[in-house]
Design a protein around this nucleic acid. Structure first.
Length: 566
RNA sequence: UGGGGAGUCGUACAAUGGCAGUACGGCAGACUCUGGAUCUGCUUAUAGGGGUUCGAAUCCUCUCUCCCCAGCCA
């Protein structure tokens, strides 16, 4: 009975929550709240679904109700078991629990058929022999009313007979359909005798070859909701036009009424959130798969290293409304950093190594220094990091001719190596082409641990690794999948894929501190001063570690450079 | 041009006839052994006109703009 598996119950006010609270106050539905998350198993879940999942499970949790997981599997040509499995895994990973309430619309096929017979008997449904093209023609247009089908006034007996024979498989695909008899002149096209059943001689992933007629969404959905006693059927705005039809079926059948409430679907900058487009990215190999870490899918975000709590938090913060909106990716990234800042262990890694030789440090000697694992969590403890004569620092941390705002290492300048010593740049070694190959520094032994006894200050602290002790690791630096804030904003005749970001993935070999040798798949770390990284669950192997960049740290210097360029 | 829906800081969401608020972003500063985190301050909004009211983002009215609908998809 309890779906309180969802942490941080939603407190933010939104119009749906207000409706539910009001219904409870008025003792509507005897004060019960039953919601459902109804995915079609024809693709992977994405962050837009996460919004719906958080809303539906969150509502149930907050108002002491329940939330069902129901697969809307009414179209065997598009649906697959693979998707059922991934969807369940994703919902669980997000932190929600439907307990024993796992349902399928296909479980209701027999009852749906009986209800259809009932509608035929009451003269509210008929078998129509028009072809697909003809049905479209008869439907009229947005501005012109439709025409009634010549088959509209068949007798109940004939309809019953034909519908039964449809089920028995006597007719080929497309030969006939069952239609609701409503109003061909309605301004709402959904009410112009919508199709309820179509013939598809196709096996269903759950019912096998039992059926060759399958119900349409508009018919199956309200009845499935009603069968489960759903009190609040929450869906996205494009179904608003379908609500009169949704209500019509429940009214004609005089069964348990449930209230459909629509909200605006989520859009996020620099990505797309439509199954069709995501499927295209996968099937045409623009990405490596549904779980490519650049994808806005739950599987992609999980592999990227986004914590589920961060996603839940994001869904709470974006709120729920009815207007078209585009949420800033920066908010999602903020939520990810906020979570990881509290939990991720700090380590030092150098993405683009520049060799540093400490000329006054004895050759062959090494030392171990104490480093804090997480300044936000003292219980995370400390670790030892090796220090020696030859080190690597980040190429970006050295400039031969630094501009005013550059605080890092430069000729003649002293900086701190984190947890180690103050070092001073004495000279720069270049190759014949003039490229900097290494820099020579001296260190001050008195500053061991990172503090100067004489109280002198440095303006920068750099991360580093000991050259002899560092491990090589592949790092995958991800940027937004699309280069354009609104990827769908395209010129006539162009494809959204033209807006793909060619620099969305950059791979290179980094030098990482030796403590990372035992890093487990999925483990998240903060590479100090660089960002949060996650051990890739699929490609990372002992001897060949792979780290995905989850998100960068906020970077003041990058911002200064960016504004300077403009 | 039929039907449905939506317009509040840059973005997203509140305020349901009574001081337009919160978060992210941006800007400025403090602090800092991460140019991280943290802290402080600032910035900017009710699509437009008319009306009702002591008082309107909210109610009425006209206008404008944007989104969705013509699958035997969901």
């Amino acid at each position: 009975m309890d779906t309180n598996k969802s942490p941080e119950p939603t407190q933010a006010s939104n119009f749906i929550r207000n409706i539910v609270a009001e219904d409870i106050k008025n003792n509507k539905n005897s004060g019960k709240v039953i919601t459902r998350f109804p995915p079609e198993p024809n693709g992977y879940l994405h962050i837009g679904h996460a919004k719906s999942i958080c809303l539906n499970f969150g509502l149930a949790a907050e108002f002491n109700g329940i939330c069902n997981l129901r697969f809307d599997d009414t179209n065997p040509s598009k649906e697959e078991q693979e998707y059922v499995d991934s969807i369940m895994a994703d919902v669980r990973w997000l932190g929600f629990d439907w307990q024993e309430r796992l349902y399928f619309a296909s479980d209701y096929f027999e009852r749906l058929y009986d209800f259809a017979v009932q509608l035929i008997n009451s003269g509210k449904a008929y078998v129509c022999d028009l072809s697909g093209d003809e049905i479209r023609q008869y439907r009229g247009t947005l501005t012109e009313p439709g025409k009634e089908s010549p088959y509209r006034n068949r007798t109940v007996e004939e309809n019953l007979d034909l519908f039964e024979r449809m089920r028995k498989g006597e007719f080929p695909d497309g030969a006939r359909v069952l239609r609701a008899k409503i109003d061909m002149s309605s301004g709402n096209i959904n009410m112009r005798d919508p199709v309820m059943y179509r013939i598809k001689h196709e096996d269903h992933q759950r019912t096998g070859s039992k059926w060759c007629i399958y119900p349409m969404y508009d018919y199956a959905h309200p009845l499935s909701d009603s069968i489960e006693g759903i009190t609040h059927s929450v869906c996205t705005m494009e179904y608003e036009d379908h609500r009169p039809l949704y209500d019509w079926f429940l009214e004609q059948l005089d069964i348990c009424r449930t209230q459909q409430i629509e909200f605006a679907r989520l859009n996020i900058t620099y990505t797309v959130l439509s199954k069709r487009k995501l499927l295209k990215l996968v099937s045409e190999n623009f990405v490596s798969g549904w779980d490519d870490p650049r994808m806005p899918t739950i599987a992609g975000m999980r592999r990227r290293g986004y914590p589920p709590a961060a996603i839940r938090n994001f869904c709470d913060r974006i709120g729920v409304g009815k207007r078209d909106s585009m949420v800033d990716m920066a908010l999602l990234e903020f939520c990810v950093r906020e979570d990881l800042n509290k939990t991720a262990l700090r380590v030092m890694s150098v993405l683009k190594p520049l060799k540093v030789v400490i000329t006054n440090y004895p050759e062959g000697q090494y030392d171990e220094l104490d480093a804090v694992n997480n300044p936000e969590d003292s219980s995370a403890g400390t670790r030892k990091v090796p220090f020696s004569r030859e080190l690597y620092i980040e190429q970006d941390d050295f400039m031969e001719e630094p501009p005013k705002q550059f605080f890092r290492l430069a000729p003649g300048r002293e900086v701190r190596l984190r947890y180690a010593y103050f070092i001073k740049c004495e000279s720069v070694v270049k190759d014949s082409a003039g490229n900097i190959v290494e820099i020579h520094c001296t260190y001050d032994p008195a500053t061991r641990g990172g503090d100067a006894p004489d109280g002198r200050k440095v303006k920068a602290t750099l991360h580093w690794v000991s050259a002899a002790h560092a491990l090589d690791a592949e790092v995958r630096l991800y940027d937004t999948l699309f280069a354009k804030e609104a990827p769908d904003d395209i010129e006539e005749g162009m494809e959204f894929t033209e807006n793909l970001n060619p620099k969305s993935l950059e791979k290179n070999i980094a030098k990482v501190e030796p403590s990372l040798k035992s890093a487990q798949p999925g483990a998240q770390y903060q590479f100090e001063r660089l960002g949060y990284f996650c051990v890739d669950s699929f490609d990372s192997k002992t001897g060949h570690p792979v780290f995905n960049r989850i998100v960068t740290l906020k970077d003041e210097w990058a911002k200064i450079q960016k504004t300077a360029k403009k």
